[in-house]
Simulated scan of single mutants.
Amino acid sequence: NKVAPKPGKSRSNRYLTTLARLREVDTELEFCRNWVAQKERVLTAKRGKLSSLLKAIDEGRYSLCFGSKKLLQQRPGAHNTETTPFASVEDWHEAWDTARNGQVWSIGHTAKPSGNSELQWLPDTNQLRVRLTDKLAHERMDALGIPRSGGPQKVMPLRMKCRFITIDGVDFASHRGAARAALIDAFGKRPVTMRLLQRLSPVGERIWYLQASVDVPTGFNPETARTREAGVLGLDLNARGVAWAVVKPDGNRLREVHPQSGFLDWDLKGLSDSVRKQIIGTTVVELARLAKRLGIAVAIENLDFATKKAGLRAGGVNKRYNEMLSSFASSQFAELMTRAC
């Protein structure tokens, strides 16, 4: 009322600005109420879970399992004497340790021999050098009477032998020699990540596998890459799929190509992360092949939806809407699209 125009006078800018702010108050209040209601729903659900857990603890009933639920149910006991495949708890423990603790990852490092510091493959002799833990290495040093540190210079090679064990007959013979050649080419240039794992065969024998991962050069050269002047394949991501269109620099469709636009749909609701990633990966590969066939670049929108999704989720009114936002894998799509290109 203080800034209201007098009779016969026009409305001032200050008056118009005040009116605009007042009109936004109802919208802001509704947003805040929805945000608080959503937090209350989450808090109520967590209190319910807490109550269930406390009740289970009081009754001595636990249902916590990190790993295979099926294997846990096969633990020999009075309730499954006729159905469990294990003769004793010791046999079950061995299978459990194999399933849960049967693998070792070693992240690669370019500066290390063979591109890795713990698992080093020697292609000339087909040997694998495995670095032991400090505890095992110290036990071997103590058994041979080698000092753990210091001492004369001549004990250094002996100390290194205690830190590594050598396994003969290890070779990468798959993919018609391409895997072996890729590893040898990566040594000294790119890191090599190794994975050592063990599994039990159907007859009960322990089998070891060695897997190596290396980034193979794609041949991409920014200097010779396609420019936007020839047109781009524009992508628009939403919860139902990906819409694409071939456009010119001015934003109009490129009429000389066929097809000019399309839509690749998907349904990611209720799927696990691995299945969702597989569906998205299939879609981005199809888009990358289309762009390669047309000989144009790919333009993708700015998919930093973290803040926007938080605001939308706060204003959500039901569980189905929040599930739709959770399955809206924008960052995952952008990452896979970049890798595919």
Score class of each variant (00 low, 15 high):
Gly102Lys: 04
Glu139Lys: 03
Lys55Gly: 05
Phe66Lys: 13
Val192Gln: 04
Thr307Arg: 12
Asp58Pro: 08
Phe164Leu: 03
Ser10Ile: 04
Ala181Phe: 00
Trp105Ile: 10
Leu268His: 01
Leu122Thr: 04
Ile300Leu: 03
Pro76Ala: 00
Asp304Arg: 07
Pro5Arg: 05
Val257Glu: 07
Ser12Ala: 00
Arg14Pro: 08
Leu336Glu: 06
Cys341Phe: 06
Glu139Tyr: 00
Leu210Ser: 02
Gly151Leu: 05
Gly67Thr: 00
Glu59Met: 07
Lys69Phe: 05
Glu90Tyr: 08
Leu235Lys: 01
Leu210Lys: 02
Leu197Phe: 07
Ser52Ala: 12
Val232Arg: 05
Lys39Arg: 15
Val3Ala: 01
Leu254His: 06
Ala143Ser: 03
Glu323Arg: 15
Ser12Asp: 01
Leu233Pro: 06
Thr84Asp: 05
Ala37Asn: 08
Arg289Ala: 11
Leu158Cys: 02
Asn302Ala: 10
Leu254Cys: 04
Arg180Gln: 12
Arg320Asp: 12
Val284Phe: 08
Ala4Arg: 10
Gly60Trp: 15
Gly151Pro: 03
Gln211Asn: 07
Arg199Cys: 06
Arg313Thr: 15
Met141Phe: 03
Ile207Asn: 10
Met324Gly: 12
Phe305Arg: 04
Trp208Thr: 06
Ala181Gln: 10
Phe172His: 06
Trp244Cys: 08
Val192Trp: 10
Ser201Met: 04
Tyr209Ala: 07
Leu197Gln: 08
Lys308Gly: 05
Gly262Gln: 02
Glu82Val: 13
Ala314Asp: 15
Pro5Gly: 01
Ile280His: 07
